[in-house]
Design a protein around this nucleic acid. Structure first.
Lengths: 242, 242
DNA sequence: CGGGAATGGTCGGTTTCCCGACACTTGTCC
DNA sequence: GGACAAGTGTCGGGAAACCGACCATTCCCG
């Protein structure tokens, strides 16, 4: 997993460089700037289930995912849980609190064992301000996030369970965040229920109805999307599908 | 209403200056930059109900609200409607499509008669890039939007009707977007239902239950919040309240 | 390889909420 | 000032989803 040894700064820096360059937001930085960024980035690994950041904390760090997936979620006093986003390799998270200085608005936990880079806010904020191009990149990133989140609100208001579930499966399939090839999504039904805001039972019922139609195939801890067009049609019409 | 006459550039520019300076995002600009911005901004008025921008359009304009309120919404094929945001005086909207170049993700309609400034993307984008401070302001703006929208997703997933309704009323009261003093919200029950994603009937039923407890008072086309603490408690616990 | 945790599958009773319909009030525009 | 639109109040049937309670299976870790 962690091939760079923190005891060897030279090699560490070299690996960091090649990894950070794959993150779209840093890809176009000048070599000097990228090098500077590498010096700021600290390498870490976290075990599945571990808390990376908690709601309400000061946002002192920006995170970049090297491997694994991170779950952004929030929970209510009565134990219910809402999954807001899943962050995969090549993506960053925790940028909002870093950029605006307000407390974290959600929890971040390791959905699988993860390899991360952590960048301190005190290093990063001046760095962004010194790189106008990077600021524009962040504006684009935030715009994308906003589009995604607004669409979620839209779907949750306009669509019923089948529509929402279809939309969620489509989103996961298209982004390939959990894709291990040919439409296999490594996600539990419990997690899906927390993404769309319905109970696990309702999700299970709907999924098996679709499995009977060969739209999907259910495996343990995974869902295989077989007929993506059927799901797309259902998601777009927003109706029916029981 | 419209005190600046477009036939008189001098006076127009003077008024624009004082108005644009009230928008937090432009407030800290250098006088020269602000002056430049005024030259870009075109003044317009739109009548209640008129479409300002439509979903799918290219985002060629940034809008700043001078007076009135604008409704950001999206509708499904079967006629259902979702209100995503309400924009009041001193706020801007339409910035996402301008900043990232993608099509508009929602409709914008005049909720009341409105007075707006319109700025062309071709003028504005180079302007932002030439003003590093402004880029940071936009980052903060987008972060705020993202926090608000994420919270909406959270609420819609975690809370039931009473909780969501209470949260919506609290939000509207605290932002004072529709406030005409002492907690009076100028909003119809139909509109609230489209904000929280429930039917008007359900909203009406819940509101009258609260009116019976003197938590709110219902007027024609308006809601007066009487006991804000009761609503806050309900919104935070997320439970009960029938 | 064995035990426990995680995940999936299943079931009715109950609640919530939608749906369609309608009467009444208020406001607005000609 | 009168017609019409917009907004509110109300009702009951029926569908959708929750809830709590299970057991079966699979996986993972010691």
């Amino acid at each position: 997993m962690a091939q760079d040894k923190t005891s060897d700064p030279r090699q560490s820096s070299g690996n960091k460089l090649s990894v950070l360059r794959k993150h779209p937001i840093f890809a176009d930085l000048e070599p000097d700037a990228l090098d500077q960024l590498c010096r700021y980035a600290k390498h870490t690994t976290v075990k599945r289930g571990a808390t990376i950041a908690a709601k309400g904390d000061p946002g002192n760090n920006l995170f970049a995912v090297v491997s694994g997936t991170v779950k952004i979620s929030s929970s209510s006093p009565d134990g219910r849980n809402a999954i807001l986003n899943l962050i995969g390799p090549g993506e960053i998270f925790g940028e909002i609190a870093v950029l605006d200085g307000a407390p974290r608005s959600a929890d971040a936990t390791a959905n699988t064992n993860c390899e991360l880079y952590i960048i301190d806010r005190r290093d990063f904020l001046p760095f962004v301000k010194s790189q106008p191009e990077l600021a524009m990149k962040f504006i684009e990133l935030l715009c994308g996030r906003l589009r995604w989140t607004s669409q979620q609100v839209e779907q949750v208001i306009l669509q019923n369970l089948p529509g929402r579930l279809a939309s969620a499966l489509l989103g996961l399939t298209e982004e390939r965040k959990l894709d291990s090839g040919s439409g296999t999504l490594a996600i539990t039904q419990q997690e899906i229920s927390e993404m769309v805001g319905m109970t696990r039972e309702s999700i299970n019922k709907q999924l098996r109805a679709w499995a009977a139609r060969s739209w999907v195939r259910l495996e343990h801890g995974a869902i295989v999307v077989l007929d993506i067009d059927a799901l797309r049609e259902l998601a777009e019409s927003g109706l029916e599908g029981g």
